[in-house]
Structure formats: C-alpha cells, structure tokens
Write a protein that binds this DNA or RNA. Structure first.
Length: 104
DNA sequence: AGTAAGGCGGGCA
DNA sequence: GTGCCCGCCTTAC
C-alpha cells in the first residue's frame, strides 16, 4: 500500500465535526515526519468527497491548504459544524481528533 | 509576524 | 536504478 493510501485511510478515520493535523495523519500513516508527504497524498487524493481531506488542518490551527480551494474547505468544515474564522479553526482544540482515533 | 531551512514520499528526467 | 524537484507542512531564527 502506498503512503498515500495510508493517509487516505487515516483521513477517513477522522470523525465528523472533528479535524486532524497533518502531523497526526502522517504519524498515523507511519511517518511522523512525513507531514509534507501526507499533505501531498491529500492533494493527489482521487476521491475528494470520499476522503475528508478538508478535515485536515495545519498544526497551528490554520486551514493550511486545499486542492479545491480554501473557500471550499471552509465551507465543508462549517458544514461539519466546525467554526472557521480568518482561515483559522476557532475551537481547534475542541475539534481536534485524538491521534489515537486515527490509528484505530 | 515573517523568513529560511528541513525531513519524507512520489513523480519525472 | 539514480538523482532532482515538488508539495494542502513544521519548526526554528
């Protein structure tokens, strides 16, 4: 299985209304330092609606980036019940999923 | 706050 | 098979 597939799998493990950092995803994917490669996997993500790449944010709580456009990401996040302001997650610590959950 | 450097996997030459 | 560049990042200066 390619790293990308691992990442997508982890992303799909993110519960609705929650978000995860690329670091957590990368860690759950097997390489805690591959946050960049993890994000890259999302970018190449062939199933954008199936894989919630929009639920992944940067470690600082910022949205980070999005292949379909940041506005789309915000829209999806808000649809999930996550409040986003100025490209920043408001209740970041409250919507942040536990890395343990990703590994589950 | 902004800028620069860094480690990781994938794709292309 | 090897080497180089790239990317939805992260950390440090």
């Amino acid at each position: 299985m390619s790293f990308d597939e691992k990442v997508w799998k982890v992303l799909s493990k993110i519960p609705p209304g929650k978000v995860a950092t690329y670091g957590q995803v990368a860690s759950a994917a097997g390489s805690p330092r591959a946050f960049r490669a993890a994000g890259n996997a999302c970018n190449k993500n062939p199933n954008s609606p199936r894989v919630p790449c929009h639920r992944v944010v940067s470690s600082s709580g910022s949205l980070g980036g999005y292949a379909h456009g940041p506005a789309r990401k915000i829209k999806l996040l808000k649809a999930e019940g996550i409040s986003v302001k100025n490209n920043k997650i408001l209740n970041f610590d409250k919507v942040l999923v536990k890395e343990k959950e990703l590994k589950a």
